[in-house]
Design a binder for these strands. Structure first.
Lengths: 351, 351
DNA sequence: TAGCTCTACTAGAGCGCGCTAGTAGCGCGC
DNA sequence: GCGCGCTACTAGCGCGCTCTAGTAGAGCTA
C-alpha cells in the first residue's frame, strides 16, 4: 500500500486559479510593510493620504480582498454576529432583512445559519459559533431553555420573539402579546363574533403567551365558556391540520379563528377555502406577525403586526451592549404590536 | 493623558465569559500535544481508540468547540461553500433548504449571505468571499454578466436559475424554460384560452428565456397575433404593477396571464382579486417556480415546478467537481421542469 | 543484536492578518 | 544643541489551528 504521493493531501485545492492575493502581495507590490497595508484597510490613522491612495490602487489591481478568517483570528473580536433563523418562516426572513442595516451601522458583519428540516437548530448554532460569531441572535429558537441558558453562559445571546421562564443570562427582544391578542379579540367581538377559537402554536416561541392572552381576552369579554383552543403549530401544516380537525369535528365551526402565527393562519385559509368555507363570511381568520406574505399577496390576512425594524434594531443593539460590557445580560425588551385589519376578518353571518 | 491600560484596546472583548477553550487547553488538560487533539478532531488515523475517547471526554468537559476561522486559515481548503440568495424570494429559500443536505454529504460547510434591499449582491458576495468560501453558489444573481465572469475567474462559481450569453468560466444549473413555458401555453390553449398575456421579469434571471419560450409557444399555436407582453419583475410589486396596468388599459383583459415567476403571479392575484376580478373564472393565472407558497397556501397557484432538490444537488456537485479540478468550469446543466395544475387556471368564461 | 515495520505520538512551521512597541525623520521652541 | 511631539512608517509576535517531518517504543524477523 504505497500512497501515490503523500505530499498532496487529498484535501488540497488542486489548481488554485492564481492563488488569492494576500496583504503581503500588496505590500510587496508597493515596497512597503504589511502593517501599513493593514492600517490602510482598517482605516486607522498613521498613513498619509497619498499612501492610502496607492495602497487601494495596488489592492484593486491585484484583486486583493481582506481575508475574514484571518482577520477574525487575529483580532480579539470578530465583529461577527451569528443569526439563526428558520428558512421557511417568512417572519424570520423579515427579521433577517431588518437586522442587516443596524448591524452594518454598528460595524458588525453577519453570518446566517438556517434551520431547515434536514438540519436542526443545534447544528445551525454550532456552525455560527464555529464561525466565530461573537454573539448570537436567535430568531424564535425552539431549542430548550436550558440549551439557551448554556449558550448564554458561553457568549452573548439575544433571543427574538420568545419568552423564557427562567433567568437565563440572555437578552430577550419581543413584542407584548397581550395587547395584540386583546386587540384581536376586541376586533372580532366588535364585529359580532362570540365563537372565537384559537389555534395555538404548542410550545413554539411566543405561542404560550398568545394562548394565555387569548384566554384572558375572552374572559374579559365574558366569553369564558366560548374559549376553544385547537392544538396547532407555527407552520402551514399546523394550520391545515387544525382546520381539518375543526371541519371533522361534530361541533359547528367557530365564526372566527385566531391563529398563533401567519403561517398557521395561511394553512387554515388553505383548507377552509378548499372545503368551500367562505372567508370571512363563514369564518374570519386572524394571524400573527404580519409577515410580508400576509399583506402583499391576495392572502390579505388580518393579523398582528410586530414592529420588525425596531425589534431588529433593539436586538442588534442589545448584542452590542452585551459585547461592550455596557450591562449584564438578562434584559427583556418588549415592543408594542398592533392589529392590522385586512380582508380575512368581517362580521359573522347568521346561520 | 495617561491611558488607563494600554493593553486593553477598546475593541477587545471586555469580559469574555471565561475565555473560549482552545485545542491547547484540551491538550494541556490531558498532558498531550495539540497535534494529537487535532488528529482526533479531524478523525485522522494516528491515535489510539482510548486516547480518542479521552480527548473527546476532556473536550466535552471543557466545552471546547473547534474554531472554524482558525481551521479555515490553517487548512489549504476551507470546505466552505458560499451561498447567495435573495431573502424575499421563496424559491431561493427553497433552494437554500435543498442545498444543505448535499453540502453536508460532500463535507462542505455553508455560509449564507442574503441580498436584501439595503444590501446589494455585490456586498453580499464580498462577504462570502471574505469568509473564505471556496466556491460560490449564486441563486438567480442579478449582477452583470461581466461581474459573474470576473468572479468565475477568481474562484469556482455555480449560477442557479440564470442563463448567460457569454462563456464565463462558471457552471450553470437551471431548468429548460422552453418545455415548461410550452406546457403552460398548451395547458391554457387546451382550456380554450387564446388571449394569453405574459408578464415578464425584465432582465431578471430566467426571464428572457421564459419570454422567448412564451412567444415561441404562442406562435406554435398560431396565436402570434395574440402575443402580449406586459413588462414586469420577479417581485410581488412587479405583478401588482402589471395587473394595474392591465386593468387601466382600454383593451379588454386577457383571459389568461402567464407570469414570469410565482411572486409576480401572486402580485397579479393580489390586485386582480382586490379589483373583483374572479380567478380563474375571468382570468387564469399561471406562475413559475412552484415555490412552497404556491402550493401550500390558499394561493393554490398553477405553476411550473422546477426540480429544486436536483437543482441543488447538481449545483453543489458542480462546485465540488470544480474544486476537485475534476473538470473545467463552464458546464451548463439543465433539468426538466413540469406544469403543476392548481386552482388559478381554468376554462375561460364567455363574455 | 541489529534492522525493520508499525503504531502512537510530538515539534514546529506557517495560514493571513491585527496590533503593540518601536524607529526614523522632521519641525519647533528655548 | 537638546528634548519634545508629531507623522509616517516597520518589526515581529501571536490568534487557533493543520500538516509535514520526525521520534520513541513495541513487536517482529533473521
Amino acid at each position: 500500500m504505497t500512497p501515490r504521493n503523500p505530499r498532496q493531501g487529498s484535501d488540497r485545492i488542486p489548481a488554485p486559479r492564481s492563488r488569492k492575493p494576500t496583504m503581503a502581495d500588496v505590500a510587496a507590490e508597493l515596497g512597503v510593510s504589511r502593517a501599513l497595508v493593514s492600517l490602510v484597510f482598517r482605516d486607522q490613522p498613521g498613513a498619509s493620504p497619498e499612501t492610502r491612495e496607492r495602497v487601494f490602487e495596488a489592492a484593486a489591481r491585484l484583486g486583493y480582498k481582506p481575508d475574514m478568517a484571518a482577520r477574525l483570528l487575529a483580532r480579539g473580536r470578530s465583529k461577527v454576529l451569528g443569526v439563526l433563523f428558520t428558512a421557511r418562516n417568512p417572519h424570520h426572513v423579515d427579521l433577517v432583512e431588518a437586522i442587516y442595516p443596524t448591524a452594518e451601522e454598528l460595524g458588525y458583519d453577519l453570518v446566517l445559519s438556517a434551520a431547515v428540516p434536514s438540519r436542526d437548530e443545534h447544528k445551525a448554532i454550532e456552525a455560527l459559533v464555529g464561525h466565530r460569531s461573537e454573539a448570537l441572535l436567535l430568531c424564535g429558537p425552539t431549542i430548550s431553555e436550558e440549551d439557551i441558558a448554556d449558550l448564554g453562559a458561553r457568549l452573548p445571546v439575544v433571543v427574538l420573539g420568545r419568552h423564557l421562564k427562567g433567568s437565563a443570562a440572555v437578552d430577550i427582544v419581543t413584542s407584548y402579546d397581550r395587547p395584540g391578542a386583546r386587540e384581536v379579540v376586541d376586533h372580532l367581538v366588535g364585529l359580532g363574533h362570540r365563537d372565537i377559537a384559537h389555534v395555538d402554536g404548542g410550545s413554539r416561541p411566543g405561542a404560550p403567551e398568545r394562548r394565555r392572552a387569548y384566554r384572558d381576552a375572552m374572559r374579559a369579554h365574558g366569553l369564558a365558556d366560548r374559549i376553544r383552543i385547537i392544538p396547532g403549530n407555527h407552520t402551514e401544516e399546523g394550520g391545515q391540520d387544525a382546520a381539518r380537525t375543526m371541519l371533522a369535528d361534530d361541533a359547528t365551526l367557530p365564526t372566527a379563528v385566531f391563529a398563533s402565527n401567519d403561517q398557521c393562519a395561511i394553512g387554515l385559509l388553505d383548507v377552509f377555502t378548499r372545503a368551500g368555507v367562505k372567508i370571512p363570511e363563514q369564518v374570519s381568520i386572524v394571524g400573527y406577525d404580519d409577515s410580508h406574505i400576509a399583506g402583499l399577496s391576495h392572502i390579505d390576512l388580518t393579523t398582528v403586526r410586530q414592529d420588525v425594524p425596531r425589534l431588529a434594531r433593539l436586538a442588534v443593539e442589545a448584542a452590542d451592549e452585551q459585547l461592550r460590557g455596557a450591562r449584564e445580560p438578562g434584559a427583556t425588551l418588549k415592543l408594542e404590536s398592533k392589529l392590522v385589519v385586512r380582508g380575512t376578518s368581517g362580521p359573522p353571518t347568521q346561520r
